Simulated assay, not measured.
Amino acid sequence: MVDVDEVLGLFMEGFGRFLEGRGLEFRVDRFALFQNIYRPGESDHLPIEDGRGHFDDFFRYGCGDMEPAPGAVDALRGLSRRASIVIFTNAPGPARLARARWLGRHRMDYPLVLNTGPKGPLAAVMAAQVRGPAVFIDDLISNLDSVADHAPQVTRFQMVADTRLQRLAPTAPDRHARIDDWAELRAAIEATIG
Rank of each mutant, 00 (worst) to 15 (best):
I137D: 06
I137T: 10
I137E: 06
D138Y: 02
D138L: 04
D138N: 14
D138K: 08
D139V: 10
D139Q: 11
D139W: 01
L140I: 03
L140C: 07
I141W: 03
I141D: 01
S142C: 07
S142K: 13
N143R: 05
N143G: 07
N143A: 10
L144K: 04
L144S: 09
L144I: 09
D145W: 02
D145Q: 12
S146M: 11
V147P: 08
V147T: 01
V147A: 04
V147R: 00
A148D: 13
A148R: 15
D149R: 14
D149T: 10
D149I: 03
H150G: 00
H150T: 02
H150D: 08
H150W: 12
A151P: 01
A151I: 06
A151H: 02
P152R: 03
P152V: 02
P152E: 00
Q153R: 12
Q153Y: 01
Q153G: 04
Q153W: 10
V154Q: 12
V154I: 11
T155F: 04
R156E: 01
R156H: 05
R156P: 03
R156V: 00
F157K: 07
F157D: 04
F157T: 05
F157V: 08
Q158P: 05
Q158H: 08
Q158C: 03
Q158I: 03
Q158G: 09
M159K: 09
M159P: 05
V160K: 08
V160Q: 13
V160I: 15
A161I: 11
A161C: 14
A161M: 11
D162A: 12
D162P: 08
D162I: 05
D162F: 01
T163R: 13
T163D: 14
T163F: 05
T163N: 11
T163P: 11
R164S: 14
R164P: 09
R164V: 08
R164N: 13
R164F: 07
Q166F: 04
Q166R: 15
Q166D: 13
R167G: 14
L168P: 06
L168G: 02
A169N: 10
A169W: 05
P170G: 07
P170C: 10
T171D: 00
T171M: 00
T171L: 01
T171V: 05
T171S: 08
A172P: 01
A172W: 00
A172I: 01
A172N: 09
A172K: 13
P173V: 11
P173Y: 15
P173G: 09
D174N: 12
D174F: 10
D174W: 12
D174S: 14
H176G: 08
H176A: 06
H176P: 08
H176Q: 06
A177W: 07
A177Q: 09
R178F: 00
R178P: 01
I179V: 06
I179E: 00
I179R: 00
I179C: 00
D180G: 11
D180W: 07
D180Y: 06
D180M: 08
D181R: 14
D181G: 15
W182S: 06
W182C: 07
A183H: 08
A183I: 07
E184F: 06
E184M: 11
E184L: 15
E184N: 13
E184H: 15
E184V: 04
